[in-house]
Amino acid sequence: MEKPRDRLTRGKAGGTSWRKWSFNHVAALVIGVVAAALLATLPQHVARPKALLGRVLSGLDPALFPEAILWALLALAVAYFLLAGRLHELNLFRTVEPRGFVNVGVTIAALIAYAIALPHLGFVATGAILVMGLAAFYGNRNHALTVAIGALVPAAIYLGFTRLLHVSLPEFPFL
């Protein structure tokens, strides 16, 4: 099977016209819509400047720089949209198999779960569960090694940070 790749030249080969809708069009639209939405709601996102006896204390309006940036983003999104038809790039998501998305999704879910569990279960327990769980999920079949590394490495990191660098990490909750 032929591997998908970038087509940087215009032409009929491959049957894709330069006018065809691409991921670049979608990305440009998303960026443009976000920039426009932020511009429209700018007063809600920037607090009123501090004033003393009616005079604003800062020489620069706190909304000026954000407004300039968002207008620049909007203008660039329009330029990107107009150029998108000429950019014959391959969307690299197309090279990922369905199983790949599952793997990445599971890892992201594990990271979020770790962030939530860390203050409750402590650093060592959360780290051990994460290492063992992910190692098993990634296909490591040497379970004794997985358990050993899963238990020892988070404990070593914990001791290193708390004892040597004097940094506080969430303690093991049952001790």
Partner: peptide, 22 residues
């Protein structure tokens, strides 16, 4: 398969110790 979970734990630790904030 062993190295990547450890990398993830190092990354999480690095991000956490900066301000001790989940």
């Amino acid at each position: 398969s062993l190295l990547l979970p450890l990398t993830v734990v190092f990354a999480l630790t690095g991000a956490y110790v900066y301000q001790s904030s989940p």
